[in-house]
């Protein structure tokens, strides 16, 4: 079995974002780029599955759609333990376009399990994984909190409102992962870092596919009213304020 983990390159989650060019582009000055947290966890789970010989998982590949500037993030994934990496050389500006590029990669290389995160921390679209599946006519399972392989078949736990479902699905399929998929992200060891330096990142040129959306501009969140403080000696006043002003109590 071959697993593909799709990784998105995002600003570190503590970044306070700013915009340039008439608020149409992210100001990348001083930004630390990281693997999207979900993708780090899905890579971790893929490697755990590979470590367990009974699963029959032979390789874990990472794929990223992005420009050469995101190579350090791809190297990080290799250092953590991915066997190889693919980069599609395109600026990721639209989920539809990104998914179409990944689908092309899958058509050429053939994977049994494709893992995507539930959302990227920059675009927050929750879209790429399901779109890849639809482009390929494959089943997809969303909100996956556990993925096991038992006797060659994938057994998935899906989170639903107030509970869980255990689902079986034939490969190939797309799993869109969320909290629970792995406990802690695996960290690159020295050996991995050394090995990652020499691993080649396979480069694909993008296929011509139009983006369906365009970001006209970014805006900062609406400013919130300043905090009204209530004296700690008189908490009751807080409840009275909430009752009078928010009418929610």
């Amino acid at each position: 079995m071959k697993i593909l983990v799709c990784i998105s390159n995002v600003p570190d989650t503590t970044t306070k974002v700013k915009f340039v060019d008439g608020d149409t582009k992210l100001d990348t000055n001083g930004i630390q780029w990281v693997i999207n947290p979900w993708d780090e966890l899905s890579l971790t789970r893929a490697l755990e599955l590979k470590d367990d010989a009974s699963t029959g998982v032979k390789s874990v590949t990472v794929a990223h759609v992005g420009l050469a500037t995101s190579e350090p993030t791809i190297r990080k994934a290799l250092a953590i333990g991915a066997d190889d990496a693919i980069r599609v050389n395109a600026d990721p500006t639209d989920a539809y376009n990104v998914a179409a590029q990944i689908a092309e990669v899958v058509k050429k290389e053939q994977f049994d399990i494709i893992m995507c995160g539930i959302e990227s921390s920059d675009f927050n679209s929750s879209a790429v994984g399901s779109m890849v599946a639809e482009f390929l006519g494959m089943p997809s399972v969303s909100a996956v909190s556990n993925l096991k392989i038992e006797n060659g078949t994938a057994v998935i736990t899906r989170e639903i409102d107030g509970g869980k479902e255990i689902i079986s699905v034939p490969a190939p399929f797309v799993a869109i992962v969320q909290k629970g998929i792995a406990k802690e992200p695996r960290i690159a060891a020295m050996r991995g870092i050394m090995m990652a330096r020499t691993k080649a990142i396979k480069l694909y040129e993008p296929v011509a596919i139009d983006a369906l959306t365009e970001t006209a501009k970014f805006e900062m969140p609406a400013a919130r009213a300043a905090c009204k403080f209530v004296d700690a000696e008189n908490p009751k006043q807080l409840i009275e304020l909430l009752q009078a002003e928010t009418k929610l109590i």
Partner: peptide, 17 residues
């Protein structure tokens, strides 16, 4: 108008189709 950067910003996105 949609959430972006995990709530750090919002984006005006044109749906072109």
């Amino acid at each position: 108008y949609k959430r972006a950067f995990s709530g750090g910003a919002y984006a005006d996105v044109v749906l072109k189709t």
